[in-house]
Design a protein around this nucleic acid. Structure first.
Lengths: 291, 291
DNA sequence: CATTATTACGAATAACGTAACGATG
DNA sequence: CATCGTTACGTTATTCGTAATAATG
């Protein structure tokens, strides 16, 4: 049961005339007859019957025509739908955000104010899905391979958020917090993964008393003084609560790289524009930039 | 854009895996790749893109899948729909009724009481449409060719309906009604055609003062005594009104044949049963039967 | 006898399968 | 190096078109 046969059938069902339909279809009459015959054989039902010199739909043929007509119309819409999808895609930006979420959504808000017709599809660390722009975080020296893709790296220090009264100098040593309660993000990738990796290198094992997969919750716990926690210097914004301060860590290597990647080949015009804006946006907020 | 290509595409879109899909489809992997490539070429859009070792739907591919999936499901229903139509047709009787309408519908009522699941499709003298049973009327000797099809003929006299006081004998001569007002059916086929033909043969020209395409209206006019009119002896039933009588016509040839035909080949079981009942029904009402 | 649908047969097109290749983790 | 997708090429199968045949009014 091929699509061409059904198109032929539909045409003949409308005109109830082989010769005329053959002309309109641009094929020879025998080809039409054969195609109809094949269809009848596959469906095991007579679709037309002779009525004098002409032919006429059988009841089965009428049933088939009722089924087929709307389907063929739907098929003819497919190329249009594809073209629309292709056109729409030019204004769609697909983002895979694994870090720096708040900065990214802020950038999106700014972008949409400038380009209202832009559409966004945002996944969180779902590497299966397609993405035009991706924001990840890696350890500075570590396995973070910048990849063959165009990428841009911003480095920032990882600080420790501690109660104000414990802040004695310009920086702190982790060893002083061997027994302190830690509040951490949950999960293995992103910021948590970087912190775990760095602690491992420094030979330090934080006493994690509370975890959450929401940075906002972690922020609140730290702000309430319930524990200390790692905190990126800038990208997460200032900590609320006046009795908590952010101090650099004296131990070496406590920093992270935020990597902004763009898909290799095909990404729409608006994705490129957004990428440029996102880089500028992050650069301004971070105050420092490295490639 | 062939149906097979779309089936292949649908399968691959679901698994996002060429090799597995090829196995499930029972074709070689290269054939799958080629089919997808052809489809992409026709639609002028990339449908899949490489994601590492595997492949992934592009946005256009997702749009196509959304369009195609329900259509393929609908196509798979076609054979079932045809089978249903074929089965249902066994209990459907298609009738083309050009004469003896009241008797036919009475027969249908009787038949349905016996076989409730039977369905009827009734057209009035629409020879284009398909019919299993056909009821026509022809002049006895005339061009009415009983056809190669199985047919059954019932002959009845055509009488004249006249006011009772004018009825002087057992029959009347048309010449006596040369100036009488006639009430006739409109149209050229059926009973009217037979009457016109017979009058022409008899060298008689009725003075038609009123025509209607509805036998019921004609019946009323005659019953009210507004004119005289031709009336089949039995098949239209008795005339209402006690001051009108039905008298035979002395002029020769005033009769009509009611022809019941059955379609040559394919008509369902119930159509055959109804045909038998209709013949018996008419035979009983007419009192006389000829083949 | 003119028109319409069907059958027969040769030719062209397109799909498939095997094998070799390229890419990727 | 093992797996997956792609390209190359020879083979097979299906479909189409021309011509001849049958049926119908």
């Amino acid at each position: 049961m091929e699509l061409l046969q059904l198109r032929y059938f539909h045409e003949v069902a409308q005109t109830q005339h082989m010769t005329n339909s053959a002309k309109r279809l641009g094929v020879a009459q025998p080809a039409l007859t054969q195609a109809i015959r094949r269809l009848e054989g596959e469906l095991d039902a007579k679709l037309f019957e002779r009525a004098g010199r002409n032919i006429r739909l059988t009841p089965c043929g009428e049933a088939l025509e009722a089924k087929v007509a709307p389907l063929l119309a739907a098929f003819d819409e497919i190329p249009l739908a594809i073209a629309q999808a292709k056109g729409q895609e030019r204004d769609t930006v697909r983002i895979d955000v694994e870090a720096a979420t708040s900065m990214t959504v802020d950038a999106i808000a700014v972008f949409r104010a400038t380009v209202p017709q832009a559409a966004f599809v945002i996944n969180q660390a779902n590497s299966e899905a397609r993405w035009d722009v991706r924001v990840r975080t890696v350890t500075p020296g570590g396995g973070g391979k910048p990849d063959a893709r165009t990428s841009q790296v911003f480095r920032e220090r990882i600080c420790l958020a501690i109660p104000k009264e414990q802040a004695k100098g310009k920086s702190v040593c982790l060893a002083d917090f061997a027994d302190a309660p830690f509040v951490c993000l949950a999960g293995t990738r992103g910021f948590r993964g970087v912190c775990d990796e760095l602690c491992l290198k420094a030979g330090f094992a934080p006493n994690v008393v509370f975890e959450s997969d929401s940075p906002d919750v972690v922020r609140k716990f730290i702000a309430l003084g319930l524990g200390v926690g790692f905190w990126p210097e800038r990208s997460w914004g200032a900590l609320e609560g006046s009795d908590v301060v952010l101090v650099p860590i004296a131990d070496p290597g406590f920093a992270r790289d935020i990597v902004v990647e763009t898909a290799k080949h095909p990404f729409g015009q608006k994705a490129a524009e957004f990428h440029a804006l996102l880089l500028e946006f992050i650069r301004r907020r971070m105050g420092e930039a490295d490639s």
